[in-house]
Each structure stands twice: as structure tokens, then as C-alpha cells.
Design a protein around this nucleic acid. Structure first.
Length: 496
RNA sequence: GCCCCAUUCGUCUAGCGGUACAGGACAUCGCCCUCUCAAGGCGGAAACAGGAGUUCGAGUCUCCUAUGGGGCACCA
């Protein structure tokens, strides 16, 4: 086995936003490289001009960086074996395609798309599998010269062996055998001069000295083709691992933007990394989550930092079976990671969200709010609904409606009395921290012969104007004595 | 239609011939805690797709069937 330094790559095509499944592929390649002290390369496969999206590269880079991935070579960072964008590497593909033709391992095909369609129609009528009939494979040099002289456009096709089988080795599944005659003479170079994936991936992985390729199982069927191309070139192959795909939780097929997946409550499950960024998921949680699909930490540990996972990562322990996107687990994991954050760290992540919601974020208040919301957030954005009222202009505060103010088993008159007694207590009391308030109001509930639930709930809603909110006394402490009193008084007319 | 891959609780998974009346997690249900919502604690229910083999012994190996998935482009 070779002792080449480990080099892996992630090679997306810039056709849109980064897909969550793509991120997992990137993550595994990156973890593997980091584990072995090797290099991770980002390569852009923009050989399909029809699907090219000029904004995709920036979006992609942003998403990868947000997740904590870093590449040693690629766009933005350069490298000795670049360029790392395939559209800038056309000369390489032409050179090696021509080399294959010279060696008799590939040929020019002048068949028009119309003829190809015709061939497939006829094959379909005869109930044969679709595919090119290899018409141009047997063209004479004279015929070829003639067509070229006439300026006919051509593609370059690979001369697939017609007999025997190709045995490929996958790190996850072991050896897999394919009959050569079932594999077509695939196009290597398109008539527009751009390579197809099949040519570009082999040439680039070789030139960039890639040692390990982790890619989606979708590629397994074309793996024997790639092996044949590698052998035609006589180059040393990387090792391959075909990663299981993530399936749509409700419907059929793999997770994709068409056929939007939905969870059991009917909510759409996002498929783009950017959706998760915007929804208030932590990159730590997303990485943890993705590393847990098809691979596991071991020791029955579900929650871990990606740095820990890198130490333990093991290609041989990847589960070969596809898996359904376990969306509820991500929510749980996100909560776990939120709870593991330090107060200042959480505050920093919350600040921009509150600001974006149009709230005036005061740092002192924020630091008081953080410990109160930390166990209550599923996603960061939840903070706006839960505790946004603590940052709103007091002048804009409106007393709650009676239906949420009046607690279960209470009526308006009793509620009013609870409020009045509470106001009196606060006016005469001294300490205004939540622990002292809690004690004082427990005593009040007892003297008034009402449950804690009734009294505390009334106060909480009076002061927050929300049915669901931060706890009563912490909320009061954050609001301060004056504002608390003001809000309790504002609630009186509601129950008069 | 043809080729390939896969198949353990609802879901993500552990298991790599005997230590297993199959372990963990999410979700779910019950109880506790509790001012709402969470968090936390305790407990319950819940799986080897089916059938043949191989073997003293099979969740683990082989084959068949079924089911799921992927591929069959001048897309990646």
C-alpha cells in the first residue's frame, strides 16, 4: 500500500445552495484528512454550463466555513496543484482525452443527439436497456478524417471493454463485481469542449494527488467505469468509499428540494445548510448530527464535539445502509449544544438575532436573560418569542387580555385581588432579586390561601403579557421594581 | 426493463458465530419536580423482513424471495 500523504477533497458543482447531504460528504472527507494530518481540498466542478449558478460558490464557501470546515487548497486559499475550478482546467482534460484517443482507448463520436434519441427509441421498442450503440467506435480513420474535414461536431467516448468484468473495491462494502458489457461507452469530452464528470474526476483526482475519495453511493454504479479509466491511464488509484444517502423521512427517495420532506407535524424539513443557519441551529449541533448518520461515535455517546469525532473517525465503521433523515434528533441535539455553551458565548449568538427582530439589545439585560432562556431554546431564534418582550420599549407594553391573565380556577375579582395584594407587597418589600421575591410570594400565596400556580401565573402573565414566558420572578428581577409595579397596575383595568 | 447496493425497536444506531430473554439515543407513554414553557430525575412499551441452508451453535456466514434505495445523459 502506498505511503502517500493523505489527501481528500470535496468537489461540489456550483448549481445552487449547499445541500445538507453534500455537507455530510464534505464533513466526512474533512474529518478523515484532519485525523491523518493530511490535506483537505475544495474543488469546484463547474463543467455543466447549463446548470451553473454564479452565486453558488460564495454561498457554498460561506456554508462550509460556518460549519467549521477549512480547506488547505482550493478557492480563496490557492495551492500548488490548482487551479481548483474545473472550467479553468480545460487544457488538462483535452490533453488527456487526446492521449486516450492516441492510445486507442477512446474515440471520437460524431453521432448527433437526434440519432442518439432515435437509437434509444428503437431499443425501447425492442425492450432493450437504453444506451449508445457504439456506432462510431468502428469508424475508419478515413471516415473520421472526412467528418472532421466537414466540421462535424464530436464528443470523445471511452472504449469500454466488451467482455469480462470489473471488480471494484469499496472501503465500506468490499469488492463489487460488474459485467463490462453492461457499461456504456460513456462520453468523456462533450462537444462544447467541456469534460464530463467521468473524465474530469479521474484527471483531477490524479493531478491533485487525492488518496481517498468519499462520495455518495449514487456514484457506485459508475465506479467500474472510473476504474477502467484509471487503468487506461495507468495511474495509481485513490481508495474509494461510497457513502450511504440520506432518505426523505416521509415520502419516497432521497432527501431533495423537489418533493419537500415534511416531519410528522407536517412542517417542511429544510434541505439546505443555509436554512439551518437561518433557523438558529448551531454549527456544532449540525456537525454532530451529520456525523451521527451512517457513523457513530461509539461508547453509546450521542453528543460530542467534532474535534472528538475526528480522533475516532473510522471509515470501516460506516454503516452501508441508507438512512432516513432523523430530524427530531437534530432539534434535541441543538438544545444539548445550546445548553453546553458558556453564558457569554450564548449571549453573543443571541444578540444579532434579537437585533434583527428590531429589538434594542442592552448587554446587561442580555446577560440576565441568557441563563433564563438557556434551557428553554430549541433553536436560537426561539429567544425572540420567549424573551423578546424583555427588550422591547416599555412604552409599547400593552396589558394582557383577560383570557390569558385570569388563571385556571380563578375569576376576575380574585385575580384583581391577587394583583392588588402583590402590588402592596412589592411596594413595601425590600429585596428585589428573584430568590427573595420567590420567598415573599410563596408566603403571600399562603396567606391568601391560593396556590402558587394561581398567584405566580397571574403575576407572570401580567408582567410579560404572554401565556408562555420566562419564569415569574426572574422576569420581575430583569424588569426591575418600577417597571414591574407599573405593569401590575396596568393589568388592574383588565379585571375590573 | 437491465445492473448494483442495502435490510436490527416508529427513527438514528450498537452488534463484526457462543459473554444477548439483543444495548444506547431521539420520539412516544407514565411518574417525580414544577408559576407557564423548558430543562432535569426515574420507569414503561418497542426490533433481528420471510424462507431455506452451513454449523455443536446464527442478528452475525451462504442462497432464494420480499421490500427499500441507487444507477442506466454531451448532469454532477
Amino acid at each position: 500500500m502506498s505511503s502517500r500523504p493523505i489527501r481528500t477533497r470535496f468537489a461540489p458543482s456550483p448549481t445552487g445552495s449547499l445541500h445538507i447531504g453534500g455537507l455530510r460528504t464534505a464533513l466526512f472527507n474533512w474529518m478523515f484528512a484532519r485525523q491523518h494530518g493530511g490535506q483537505f481540498i475544495l474543488r469546484i466542478e463547474d463543467t455543466d454550463q447549463k446548470r451553473f449558478d454564479p452565486t453558488a460558490l460564495q454561498t457554498l464557501i460561506e456554508a462550509l466555513r460556518w460549519c467549521g470546515l477549512s480547506w488547505d487548497e482550493g478557492p480563496e486559499v490557492g495551492g500548488a496543484l490548482g487551479p481548483y475550478v474545473q472550467s479553468e482546467r480545460l487544457a488538462h482534460y483535452h490533453r488527456w482525452a487526446n492521449w486516450l484517443i492516441d492510445q486507442g482507448k477512446a474515440y471520437k463520436c460524431f453521432c448527433t443527439p437526434e440519432r442518439l434519441e432515435q437509437v434509444n427509441r428503437e431499443k425501447a421498442a425492442r425492450k432493450e436497456p437504453p444506451g449508445y450503440d457504439r456506432f462510431c467506435r468502428s469508424l475508419t480513420p478515413e471516415q473520421i478524417a472526412e467528418k472532421e474535414a466537414r466540421g462535424e461536431k464530436y464528443v470523445v467516448r471511452f472504449k469500454m471493454p466488451l467482455e469480462g468484468q470489473t471488480i471494484v473495491h469499496d472501503l465500506i462494502r468490499g469488492d463489487v463485481a460488474f459485467e463490462n458489457h453492461t457499461i456504456q461507452d460513456m462520453v468523456l469530452l462533450k462537444s462544447d469542449g467541456f469534460p464530463t464528470y467521468h473524465l474530469a474526476v479521474v484527471v483531477d483526482d490524479h493531478l491533485m494527488e487525492i488518496t481517498h475519495v468519499m462520495r455518495a453511493v449514487e456514484w457506485l454504479p459508475s465506479f467500474p467505469l472510473h476504474v477502467q479509466i484509471w487503468q487506461a491511464f495507468g495511474w495509481q488509484m485513490p481508495q474509494f468509499a461510497h457513502l450511504p444517502v440520506i432518505l426523505n423521512p416521509n415520502g419516497k427517495g432521497k432527501l431533495s428540494k423537489r418533493n419537500p420532506p415534511r416531519d410528522k407535524h407536517g412542517h417542511v424539513i429544510p434541505v439546505f445548510v443555509h436554512d439551518y443557519m437561518q433557523a438558529g441551529y448551531l454549527p456544532e449541533a449540525l456537525d454532530n448530527f451529520l456525523a451521527n448518520i451512517g457513523w457513530n461515535f461509539g461508547d453509546n455517546r450521542e453528543v460530542f464535539a467534532i474535534a472528538e469525532a475526528i480522533e475516532r473517525f473510522d471509515l470501516g465503521r460506516i454503516n452501508p445502509a441508507n438512512s432516513t433523515f432523523p430530524t427530531e434528533k437534530l432539534d434535541w441535539l441543538n438544545g444539548e449544544h445550546i445548553r453546553r455553551l458558556s453564558a457569554t458565548d450564548l449571549a453573543q449568538r443571541l444578540r444579532p438575532l434579537l437585533a434583527a427582530a428590531g429589538l434594542a439589545v442592552n448587554d446587561a439585560t442580555l446577560m440576565q436573560v441568557v441563563p433564563v432562556v438557556q434551557t428553554r431554546l430549541k433553536v436560537l431564534n426561539d429567544v425572540v418569542d420567549l424573551a423578546g418582550f424583555l427588550f422591547r420599549d416599555p412604552a409599547a407594553f400593552a396589558a394582557p387580555a383577560a383570557d390569558i391573565l385570569i388563571q385556571k380556577k380563578l375569576d376576575a375579582a380574585t385575580t384583581r385581588r391577587l394583583l392588588e395584594e402583590s402590588i402592596r407587597l412589592i411596594e413595601t418589600g425590600s429585596a428585589f432579586d428573584h430568590a427573595s421575591l420567590h420567598e415573599a410570594f410563596k408566603a403571600l400565596a399562603e396567606t391568601l390561601a391560593v396556590s402558587n400556580s394561581a398567584l405566580f401565573g397571574t403575576l407572570r402573565v401580567a408582567v410579560s403579557a404572554q401565556a408562555i414566558s420566562t419564569p415569574t420572578f426572574e422576569t420581575m428581577e430583569i424588569l426591575g421594581r418600577d417597571e414591574t409595579l407599573r405593569r401590575l397596575r396596568l393589568a388592574l383595568p383588565v379585571v375590573s
